[in-house]
Computed example of a mutant assay.
Amino acid sequence: MPRRTFSIAPLAFALATFAAPGLAAAQAVEVMKSPTCGCCTAWAEHMQHAGFDVALRDTPDDMLAQAKARLGITIATASCHTAMVEGYVIEGHVPAEDVRRLLAERPDAVGLSVPGMPIGSPGMEMGDAAEPYEVLLLRRDGGTEVFARHGTN
């Protein structure tokens, strides 16, 4: 082999070894949503723009309700779509930055929820209009705690 190949090989190995974590495949997010929900699709696009690998699954409303119940989503924590990422439930319009924090911290929890559909949350953008909202950590005991606040000073 030419000498140039040998001098580049260690550099290529080092780059592959040390850069690999930053180049890891995008985290897969599987989203169950009503076939007619546009804001769910907009949230999925928000997640894709943030680097997640999103798969949308149009799900009949009765099956979506059953899935939510099975995953521990209550009426108080429910929103319009339900997603799964690395074993965590993501309910509603949770910002990608909060999902990334959840995956980095790995709490012993069911997942995150933004109950309802707050104006200004990802997928619910309406011009400059925005209302404050909280992202809830869904604890395994059925309780919740505030994980993040958005739209507040």
Results as ranks from 00 to 15, higher is better:
R140P: 11
A148Y: 01
T59W: 05
R140Y: 08
E30N: 14
A16Q: 09
A129Q: 12
P132C: 05
A78E: 09
A148M: 05
P2H: 12
F52K: 00
W43H: 06
V85L: 06
E134N: 05
A19W: 12
D58C: 03
F52D: 01
M117D: 03
A50P: 13
R57I: 15
E45Q: 15
A14H: 06
R106H: 10
H81L: 08
E145R: 04
A129D: 13
I90C: 04
M126Q: 13
D61Q: 14
M63W: 11
S79T: 01
T17Q: 13
C39K: 00
T152G: 13
V114G: 01
E30D: 15
D108F: 09
L137K: 02
D141R: 06
Q48V: 12
T41Q: 14
T82P: 09
A96Q: 02
L102I: 01
G116I: 05
Y133L: 07
T152S: 14
V110H: 01
A67G: 11
A130Y: 07
G123R: 04
R4N: 12
V89R: 00
P2K: 13
L103H: 03
F52Q: 02
A24K: 01
G92Y: 04
R3M: 14
G22M: 07
T36P: 05
I90E: 05
M32Y: 13
L112C: 02
M47H: 06
P21S: 04
T41R: 13
A20C: 05
D108Q: 11
R139L: 12
G116E: 02
A12S: 10
K68L: 12
P132V: 08
G111C: 00
L138I: 03
H46R: 02
P107M: 10
A24W: 01
A76N: 04
I8T: 14
K68R: 13
I119P: 10
V31Q: 00
V110N: 08
V85G: 03
V85W: 01
S121L: 03
E91F: 01
C80Y: 09
A67F: 12
E134L: 02
S79Q: 02
E134Q: 11
E45L: 12
P21D: 00
F13I: 15
A16H: 11
E97N: 13
V110A: 01
M84L: 14
A129K: 15
V114Y: 00
A14I: 11
R140A: 10
R139Y: 06
G120T: 04
V89E: 03
E134S: 06
T59E: 06
R101I: 04
M84V: 15
L102C: 02
F13C: 12
D62H: 10
A104L: 10
E131T: 14
A130E: 11
A55E: 15
E91C: 06
M32Q: 14
Y88F: 10
A76S: 08
A109G: 01
M124A: 03
